[in-house]
């Protein structure tokens, strides 16, 4: 055994190498043929985040949006660069509180709507302190068994 092996770390976890090391994988035989088709693996960020500096993550709490398929504990991806429009699920600031609701607009009226029968729609009048924080683009739900 040469000295190099002797002094190598016992740690063999996944953190010991980077993606760069795997790319061409020093393979021979069958592996070498596969090398020609090597490409970057699927990266969720590519699919889920269109605008990185403007995308923020939130954690859903409560049942207000269950009708839209958003459950407590889900991760929400919120893009601030997307313009709000009727029908979009948004992070809203209403009277100083952040909340997730569906934004609805009809003629000169607008509402924030929860998707659960326990909650009433809130009409946005000139007396509300309302602003859009960002638009929810994806929610990530863990399926428990």
């Amino acid at each position: 055994m040469d000295e190099e092996t002797l002094h190598e770390s016992a740690y063999r976890g996944t953190k010991a190498f980077t993606q760069l090391d795997v790319k061409t994988a020093n393979a021979t035989g069958f592996g070498a043929a596969a090398d020609d088709y090597m490409e970057r693996g699927i990266d969720l960020n590519e699919q889920l985040i269109r605008n990185k500096p403007a995308t923020f993550f939130f954690r859903m709490a409560g049942d207000a949006m269950e009708g839209a398929g958003i459950y407590a504990g889900d991760v929400l991806l919120v893009d601030r660069s997307i313009k709000v429009a009727s029908g979009k699920i948004i992070v809203a600031i209403l009277n100083g509180e952040l909340m997730v609701r569906r934004y609805k607009q009809q003629f000169n009226k607008a509402w924030l709507c929860a998707e659960h029968k326990r909650y009433k729609d809130v009409e946005l009048t000139e007396f509300c302190d309302f602003q859009t924080w960002g638009v929810v683009t994806y929610s990530i739900h863990q399926h428990k068994h």
């Binding site: 923020f56 939130f58 954690r59 709490a61 409560g62 929400l76 992070v91 909340m99």
Partner: peptide, 13 residues
């Protein structure tokens, strides 16, 4: 640390 830690994300209702 809302933007850098999974377990410190903002909890929103």
């Amino acid at each position: 640390r809302y933007t850098t830690r999974w377990n410190e994300l903002f909890e929103i209702g």
